[in-house]
Amino acid sequence: MAKVATREAYGKALAQYGADERIIVLDADLSKSTKTDTFRQVYPERHFNMGIAEGNLMCVAAGLASTGKVVFASTFAIFASERACEQIRNSICYPKLNVKVAATHAGLTVGEDGASHQCVEDLGVMRSLPNMVVLSPCDEIETNRAIKAAIEHDGPVYIRLGRLAVEAVHDPDNFEFEIGKGIEVREGNDVTLVATGLMVQESLAAAKILEENGINARVIDMHTIKPVDKDILVKAAKETGFVVTVEEHNIVGGLGSAVCEALSENYPCRVLRIGVEDKFGKSGTPAALLEKYGLNAEAIAKKTMEAMKKK
C-alpha cells in the first residue's frame, strides 16, 4: 500500500467531514503544507487564511467557536503549540471552546528545515493544559478517525500530525478508534513497547528484530496522550513487567512522562523512555535524523535489549 503522511490524511478527512457547516478552517500561510488546501478546494467559503500570525489565529478561532462553530486551527506544530501556547491556554482551554488545533510537521521528520522547525515539545506543552485532549495518530485511517472524534468531542483537542509519508498500521476495514483507548497492535509477553505517531511503525519493526533475538514484544499504539489509557498500561506492566515508551519527542514531558505518571500511581513498574534526549533537532533527511537520534527500529531494539539485560 502507498505510504501516506498523516497531514495528507488530515486534509482528506477535513474534506470528507466538511459538509458539517459548523466546521471552519483557519490556516497561517501554510495551507499547501498543512493540507487544509484540500478542504479549501471543496469548501472555499469556510476556509480562512489568517496570514503569518499564529497568536491572532488561535484567538480568532476561539471567538468563532464561542458562537457555536467547530474550528480547525492549523499551522506547523512549533508555531501552534509553542508560539501560540498562551493564546491556546487562556482563550481556548480555559473557556473550554471547540477549537481543534491540528498541528502538522511535528517531530524530527520535518527533516531539512532543521531545529527551528522541529517541534519535539508539543505533547508535553499541550498535555499540561487543563481541558486539552491530545491526540497523536500514526497512520491514515487513524488520523481520519481522530479527526472525526475531534469533531464529535465537545472541547479543545490538539492533534499532532507529521510531514513524512508513512505505512499503514491499521486495517481500514476493521478499525475502531476511541479517544483515551490505546490499541494493542502486536501481542507479546516479554516487554511492552508503547509508541505514538510514526514511532508505532518503527516499534513494530523493532519488535521483529527483538523476535529474532528471542524476545516477544507487545506493541501498543498510544494514539491518545491525554487522557492516557491507564488500563492498557497497567495490564501491560502486570503481564510483561517492563515498559518501553517510544516517541518522536523529547523524553521530558511527552508520552514517556505520561506513561511514567500513570504507572507510578497505579502499578509501579520499570520504564525506559526512548525519544529525543532533551536536545534540539537538526537538518537532515528524516531517515538520517531517526538514525542520529536513535529512533529507528534498530536503535529501539538495541536499547530495549540492553535495558532488559540490566533487569
Partner: peptide, 13 residues
C-alpha cells in the same frame, strides 16, 4: 547545507 553532518542548518544558528 541542510545535510545531517553539516553545521549549516536549514535556518541560521
Amino acid at each position: 547545507f541542510r545535510k545531517i553532518d553539516s553545521y549549516l542548518e536549514g535556518h541560521p544558528s
